[in-house]
Design a protein around this nucleic acid. Structure first.
Lengths: 352, 352
DNA sequence: CTGAAAGCGCTTACAG
DNA sequence: CTGAAAGCGCTTACAG
C-alpha cells in the first residue's frame, strides 16, 4: 500500500520509474529541503504538525533517503562492518544473524570482513576497509577483538567499534562480555554433582582469552569444592578437531583414564568421541564429556553432547545495537550475555 | 611506502588528517578532474604519459576514490549483495569467502542478506535491499536462486544478478551451475564398484532442485548399470539431521536392510549414523554410507564419512567475478563448477 | 521552528 | 585526447 509500484498512477506528478528525492518531498509538502532533512534525522526542531504532514507524504510515495547521498554529506556511510578471524562457521553465521536482527528496519547494512590476524598486513587491511568505505562502525569478533594493536589503530583513525570478548578488556571502549568463566564453572559444577572426581580438561590455545577464561572458570569451580586438577589432567589443544584427537590419545590411552573430560569447545569434544569410540570406551557409561559452544555438531554426535550454549545471536544483536545508537544518547559501555549449560546424553555418574 | 600515514610530511600541501580527493589529484598533476575521472574508470581516452603521471601521484598520496561519491554520481553503489535462504552455516560462510576472494582488490564490498523464502514478504524485502542500497548486483544462492518470482522482480527493477543452481535454469541470466547430477552419479558408481546391489537413497525435499538433481543423477547412474531402485528403497527427507534419523529408522529397522545408503546431504547422513550406532549396526562393515556436501561434519563423524565435495568457495568466487566484470566486456553467461567424491572410511564391499 | 546557499567527491553530457 | 559546467541527493553552517 505504501510502496509506489510502477503500475500506480502518479498523483503528485512524480516520474514513474524514478524514486522520489528530498526535493520532491519538499516541493509536494510545501516546506524546504532542510525541514525534510530535519525530519529524516529526527531533529526536535520541527513543529509536530509539519512533521506529521511530511511523514505522511513520505509514506504515501514510498520515500526513503538515499544512503549514498547521506553518506557523502555526512562523510560517513551507513555500513556496519563485521571483522572476524574465526574458523567456526556456525559461530560466524549466528553473529551475522544477530547483527542483522539489530540492523533490520534501520538504514544500516552489514558488510563482512573476514581476516587472518596472523598475517602481517591484516591491520592495514582493516584500516583500508574502514576508511575507504567510511564505515559507520565495526563489530570486532574474537579473536580479532582481543588484538590491542587493531583497537589502537581504530582509535587512531576515529572509527567507532564494539568489542566482543569473554571478559571486560578495558573500560573505555564499548564491549559485549560473554563471561566464558561462568559457563565453564557451570560445566564443572555439573560434573561434580554427578559424582566425578577424576576429571580432565582439554583447553583451547593459550593465545585465546576465551581459552584462558574457560580454563580458569573450570579450575576455580573445582577448587571451590576442594578438587585440584593435577597437571597431567590438563592438556592444551588448538580448538580444532585434530588437536582434540591428539589430546584424547594422551588422556584416554594410558593406564589410568579420567571419568570425565571438559573441552574448551565442541570441535575438540568430537575429537575425544572419535578416540573413545575407536578404543571401545563407552560414552557416557565409562566416560562423561562436556563441550563448549553448543554447536550443531553437539546434537549430531552420538550420544548427543552436553555443551555450554553461548547465545551468539544475542551477542551479535547487542553489539550491533550499541553501534547504531544515536550519538547523543546515553550509551551503555558494557553489555553482558551469559552462557548456560545444555544437558544432553554425554554425561552420567562415574562407574565405581 | 605508498600509504600516507599521519606522520608523513605533506610535500604536496595536502591537509594532514584528510584523505586526498579528485580535486587534489587534478590540481597537483595539472590536469582536469575529468581526466582524473577517466583514469579512475579505465577509459582508453587518456594519453599514456598522462595516465602514468597521474597514477604515480595517486599511489604517492595514497588516493582512492570515494565509493559514496562515485555511487551517488553513478546512481549505483559499489556493493554486492548475497541473498540466501539456507540453514547450512559452512555452506554460507564458504560462499561468502569465495565472493570476497573475487572482490578483493576491487572497489566492491559484500553485504549479506539472509532471508526466509517461505515468508510472504521476503521478495519485497530483497527489493528494498536492492533499491535502497542501489546495489551493483546480487548473488542468488540456492534455494532463493530457484525462485522465479524473485528473479522476475530483479529483472523488473533492472538489478543484475548471478544465480547459483544445480542445473542451468534458463538461458538469459548469468548462472553458476554446480552439476549436482554428476556428483550423485559418482557416488552411485563408487558403491557399484564396491559390489553393492541393494542400495537405498535418502533424498532432500522435492521442492529443492538440488534434491531432484541428486536423486536423478543417482538413479540414472544405477540404471545405466542395470540396477533399478525399488520405491521402498527411496525415502524423501528434509535435508535435516532429524529427517535423516526418521529415514534411517524406516530403512534400517525393518527385516531386510540395504547394504549401502546414499543421502542427499551430510546432515541426513549423520542421522543415519545415529540410528545405526544405536542399533549396533557397524559402519562400514554392515552398512556403507555416502553423504553430499563434504561438510566439516563428514570428518568429525566416526568412522569419517565419504561425501561429495561441492567446491562452494569456487562457486562463490565465480559468481562474484561474473557480477563485477565491466559492462562492455564479453560476459560468459554460464560457468560450471564440478563436484567430486571424497573417499573416507564409511564404505566397503558388502558382507555376503 | 524554518530556509537559502554552499558543499560533500564524484560522473554525465556537451563542447572542442 | 582534454576540459568547464551542471548535477547526483543529501547535510552543514549560517541567518532569521
Amino acid at each position: 500500500m505504501s510502496l509506489r509500484s510502477k503500475t500506480d498512477p502518479s498523483p503528485h506528478g512524480l516520474t514513474k520509474g524514478k524514486a522520489a528525492t528530498i526535493n520532491d518531498i519538499a516541493r509536494l509538502s510545501g516546506v524546504s529541503k532542510k525541514t525534510v532533512s530535519r525530519i529524516i534525522n529526527n531533529s526536535p526542531l520541527v513543529r509536530k504538525d509539519t512533521r506529521e504532514k511530511v511523514e505522511a507524504l513520505m509514506r504515501e510515495v514510498g520515500y526513503t533517503p538515499d544512503p549514498l547521498a547521506r553518506g557523502l554529506a555526512f562523510r560517513r556511510s551507513f555500513l556496519i562492518g563485521m571483522v572476524y578471524d574465526n574458523p567456526t562457521a556456525q559461530y560466524i553465521v549466528d553473529m551475522q544473524y544477530g547483527a542483522l536482527d539489530a540492523l533490520r528496519g534501520s538504514s544500516f547494512e552489514l558488510v563482512v570482513h573476514p581476516c587472518d590476524s596472523r598475517s602481517p598486513g591484516y591491520i592495514d587491511g582493516v584500516r583500508r576497509f574502514v576508511q575507504q568505505q567510511k564505515l559507520h562502525g565495526v563489530i570486532l569478533v574474537p579473536r580479532a577483538s582481543e588484538d590491542q594493536a587493531l583497537v589502537d589503530m581504530l582509535d587512531e583513525i576515529g572509527c567507532r567499534f564494539t568489542r566482543i570478548a569473554s571478559l571486560p578488556l578495558d573500560e573505555t571502549s564499548q564491549m559485549v562480555v560473554t563471561h566464558d568463566r561462568d559457563g565453564a564453572a557451570e560445566a564443572a559444577d555439573y560434573l561434580l554433582s554427578l559424582g566425578h572426581r577424576d576429571i580432565a580438561l582439554v583447553t583451547g590455545p593459550s593465545a585465546y582469552r576465551s581459552a584462558h577464561e574457560r580454563t580458569a572458570g573450570f579450575i576455580d569451580a573445582l577448587a571451590k569444592r576442594g578438587i585440584e586438577l593435577p597437571p597431567a589432567r590438563i592438556v592444551e589443544a588448538g580448538y580444532t578437531f585434530e588437536s582434540g584427537v591428539a589430546a584424547a590419545e594422551k588422556l584416554l590411552l594410558g593406564k589410568q583414564r579420567p571419568t570425565a573430560i571438559f573441552t574448551g569447545n565442541d570441535e575438540m569434544a568430537a575429537g575425544i568421541y572419535k578416540v573413545a569410540l575407536r578404543a571401545g570406551i563407552n560414552i557416557p557409561r565409562q566416560l562423561s564429556i562436556i563441550g563448549y559452544d553448543d554447536s550443531p555438531l553437539a546434537s549430531r554426535l552420538w550420544p548427543s553432547l552436553t555443551s555450554v550454549r553461548r547465545h551468539t545471536r544475542d551477542t551479535g544483536r547487542t553489539a550491533a545495537a550499541m553501534l547504531i545508537q544515536p550519538d547523543g544518547q546515553a550509551v551503555m559501555q558494557h553489555a553482558s550475555v551469559r552462557p548456560h549449560l545444555i544437558v544432553r546424553d554425554s554425561c552420567q555418574p562415574p562407574e565405581d
